[in-house]
């Protein structure tokens, strides 16, 4: 279970942030000030902090700096639009990412996932032909050209590229990429494979359909 500390002096924002994170399956710890956040950090295990910039007392930048120095855990800053120029400050304070308010729950969850992946994920790169998969930045390069592709496509491609030539069935793919509890059908896999194929058109790799089994990735000679 991942523990996320949310810090905001605005009770309603804190409530919103907390609820969204809980619903997404994270354990949340809420604090309405920098001081309270520091007290909670002393007592509890925290994997990631989501911190609002504008707070009375210890502000978000200061708090971020302290959290990074004392606990070394990743921090996502929530900032108002006119604070964008403070971005530099945010990063120098050690925040791993920032979100401009007002934001949608979806954006928050995407960023949380991205930061956690960056921290806990493996940082190796995979290479197949002229295709390079960077598992840290979640980007791929085809013949040196950088391409950012949707997450599920990325994971699907990673799965296939990690074992070139090995065929995976649609069920295996769903299990590995979407998870056990995924309720979608095999059609989803087809759509993603189709999209990946069009993206890999000008590369040296090809996703080949293995009749009756599923798909495999091949490097063309």
């Amino acid at each position: 279970m991942i523990h996320i500390l949310a810090v905001d002096d605005d009770a309603r924002m804190l409530d919103f942030t907390g609820r969204e994170l809980r619903e997404a399956g994270y354990q949340t710890i809420l604090a309405s000030s920098g001081d309270e956040a520091l007290r909670r950090l002393e007592a509890e295990r925290v994997d990631l902090a989501v911190v609002d910039v504008m707070m009375p007392g210890i502000d978000g930048f200061e708090l971020t700096k302290m959290i990074r120095e004392m606990y070394g855990i990743p921090v996502i800053l929530l900032t108002a639009r006119h604070h964008i120029e403070d971005k530099e400050r945010g990063f120098s304070a050690g925040s791993d990412d920032y979100i401009v308010k007002p934001f949608e729950a979806k954006e928050l969850l995407f960023r949380v996932k991205a930061v956690l992946r960056r921290v806990h994920g493996s940082d190796e790169t995979l290479t197949a032909g002229d295709l390079v998969i960077d598992r840290r930045s979640y980007e791929i390069r085809i013949g040196g050209k950088k391409l950012i592709i949707p997450l599920k496509e990325f994971e699907l491609l990673t799965l296939l590229a990690a074992h070139p030539g090995q065929a995976f069935s649609r069920d295996q793919i769903i299990e590995r990429v979407w998870g056990f509890d995924y309720e979608g059908d095999e059609q989803t896999v087809n759509v993603h494979i189709k999209r990946l194929r069009s993206r890999l058109q000008h590369s040296e790799v090809e996703i080949v359909t293995v009749r009756g089994i599923g798909y495999k990735l091949e490097v063309m000679q």
Binding site: K106, A114, P150, R195
Partner: peptide, 12 residues
């Protein structure tokens, strides 16, 4: 990135 992701779009 989350919007690109949500809409199944790649960015070059």
């Amino acid at each position: 990135r989350y919007l690109f992701d949500e809409n199944g779009l790649a960015v070059a």
